[in-house]
Simulated assay, not measured.
Amino acid sequence: MMTDTDKRSAVLSIGRIYCDLIFTGLSELPVLGRELFADDMQIAAGGGAFISAAHLVHAGRKTALVARLGTDVLSGDARRQIAKSGVDLRFVEHAAEAGPQVTVAAVIGKERAFLTRRAGAAIPSTLNDAFSWPEAKHLHIAEYATLHEIPDLVQRAKSKGLSVSLDPSWDAALIYDKGLLQACAGVDLFLPNLEEAEAITGSSDPETALRVLSSTFPHVALKGGAQGAWTISDGNMLHVAADSVPVVDTTGAGDAFNGGFIDAWLDEGSPLACLTAGIRSGSLAVQSPGGFDMSLVPT
């Protein structure tokens, strides 16, 4: 007989949904007063919440987005792509003032620059329904900005018996907030990249930053892009190198890593298994424009 515990295996992924306009084949960044032409452009559903969710689904984990989405043309296109990925949309609120949310990404080799517009508030009217979903086991918060807008988000998830992960995500207005770590109290799994970890801890050394963060969070994974990723368990540091793959666009690679790592972590995988799963998902993301390659979806 299946118990209530057996039913709880799904992930809720909360955060803003964007329509990503990804320009590739650039030789330089735009300069004021000059027009620059890209070799190619892709329009893709984006935002950490969706990208992590899509890679969780690709790993075989039922995952639902908890988000707001506009009613404009760009938001509608993003919704169609999200639906195609297999991510559950039952907790997505549709509202005109929630869109369009757009990120323009200029990609030069392995580097990129972003220009983003947010729209409306982050908190969806569906949040209580999401927390009452009997299949939900875990909440992934795709950016600290969402927690900043919904300060009791972690506590509400914990009161429902959910574990919680958080990717701080780069936001220059928030990443240097001295109260960030305190605001993240209760988070089980913290998932920064090297730049974010340095901003939070003041150290550019991965091992030092990881040890500082592990004094606050039970589990930490530190993403280093081409350098691979690190985690710490029982005081022991573990590093796994990045896979050698052709890189088209690194947009969303960290969010893809989150999806793979969280899936293995929820299955109580070893630190090595979790890092390996995260890197595998991140490697898939960098081989095509955008954070999730729709060709991965079974036809």
Rank of each mutant, 00 (worst) to 15 (best):
residue 24 T to P: 08
residue 210 L to F: 01
residue 219 H to I: 05
residue 38 A to C: 13
residue 30 P to R: 11
residue 298 P to R: 13
residue 82 I to Q: 04
residue 182 Q to F: 11
residue 51 I to M: 03
residue 168 P to F: 13
residue 1 M to Q: 06
residue 210 L to Y: 00
residue 149 E to W: 14
residue 279 I to V: 14
residue 194 L to N: 06
residue 71 T to C: 10
residue 147 L to T: 05
residue 8 R to L: 04
residue 218 P to K: 09
residue 291 G to P: 04
residue 175 I to L: 11
residue 78 A to Q: 02
residue 20 D to F: 12
residue 2 M to Q: 12
residue 52 S to N: 08
residue 195 E to A: 09
residue 182 Q to V: 07
residue 203 S to Q: 06
residue 129 D to F: 13
residue 151 P to V: 07
residue 166 L to P: 03
residue 18 Y to K: 07
residue 102 V to A: 03
residue 87 V to W: 11
residue 125 S to N: 13
residue 215 S to D: 14
residue 123 I to R: 14
residue 154 V to S: 02
residue 25 G to T: 14
residue 36 L to M: 10
residue 285 A to D: 04
residue 238 L to E: 05
residue 146 T to K: 07
residue 72 D to Q: 07
residue 120 G to Q: 07
residue 156 R to F: 09
residue 108 I to R: 12
residue 125 S to A: 15
residue 215 S to Y: 02
residue 94 H to Q: 14
residue 206 P to C: 05
residue 235 G to E: 05
residue 237 M to T: 15
residue 206 P to Y: 02
residue 258 N to R: 00
residue 55 H to W: 13
residue 183 A to G: 04
residue 238 L to G: 01
residue 246 P to H: 00
residue 31 V to Y: 09
residue 27 S to Y: 06
residue 41 M to V: 15
residue 119 A to Q: 15
residue 204 S to F: 08
residue 248 V to N: 02
residue 75 S to I: 02
residue 234 D to Q: 11
residue 26 L to I: 14
residue 214 S to T: 05
residue 288 S to I: 04
residue 39 D to K: 15
residue 232 I to L: 13
residue 64 A to K: 03
residue 65 L to E: 05
residue 276 T to L: 07
residue 145 A to Q: 13
residue 243 D to N: 11
residue 95 A to M: 10
residue 199 A to W: 08
residue 192 P to I: 10
residue 27 S to V: 12
residue 293 D to R: 05
residue 244 S to E: 15
residue 279 I to S: 08
residue 294 M to P: 03
residue 298 P to M: 08
residue 188 D to A: 09
residue 213 L to Y: 03
residue 93 E to A: 08
residue 42 Q to S: 15
residue 117 R to D: 01
residue 97 E to P: 10
residue 106 A to W: 15
residue 253 A to V: 06
residue 180 L to N: 11
residue 261 F to P: 00
residue 138 H to A: 01
residue 115 L to C: 12
residue 111 E to M: 08
residue 214 S to G: 01
residue 170 W to A: 08
residue 188 D to F: 12
residue 71 T to A: 04
residue 87 V to N: 07
residue 262 I to F: 00
residue 176 Y to G: 07
residue 158 K to T: 09
residue 148 H to K: 15
residue 179 G to F: 15
residue 192 P to M: 12
residue 17 I to R: 07
residue 196 E to G: 02
residue 175 I to R: 13
residue 121 A to Y: 06
residue 26 L to H: 11
residue 37 F to D: 00
residue 246 P to N: 02
residue 108 I to T: 13
residue 5 T to M: 12
residue 153 L to K: 09
residue 59 A to P: 01
residue 89 L to I: 11
residue 158 K to M: 10
residue 55 H to Q: 06
residue 129 D to H: 15
residue 28 E to R: 15
residue 264 A to C: 03
residue 35 E to H: 10
residue 222 L to W: 09
residue 201 T to P: 08
residue 164 V to K: 04
residue 236 N to L: 05
residue 15 G to F: 07
residue 73 V to S: 05
residue 68 R to C: 08
residue 106 A to V: 08
residue 73 V to A: 11
residue 175 I to G: 09
residue 154 V to E: 00
residue 58 H to A: 11
residue 68 R to S: 03
residue 64 A to F: 09
residue 287 Q to C: 06
residue 283 S to D: 11
residue 73 V to H: 14
residue 28 E to C: 13
residue 226 A to P: 07
residue 75 S to H: 08
residue 260 G to A: 02
residue 247 V to Y: 02
residue 37 F to N: 00
residue 267 D to A: 14
residue 236 N to D: 03
residue 275 L to H: 10
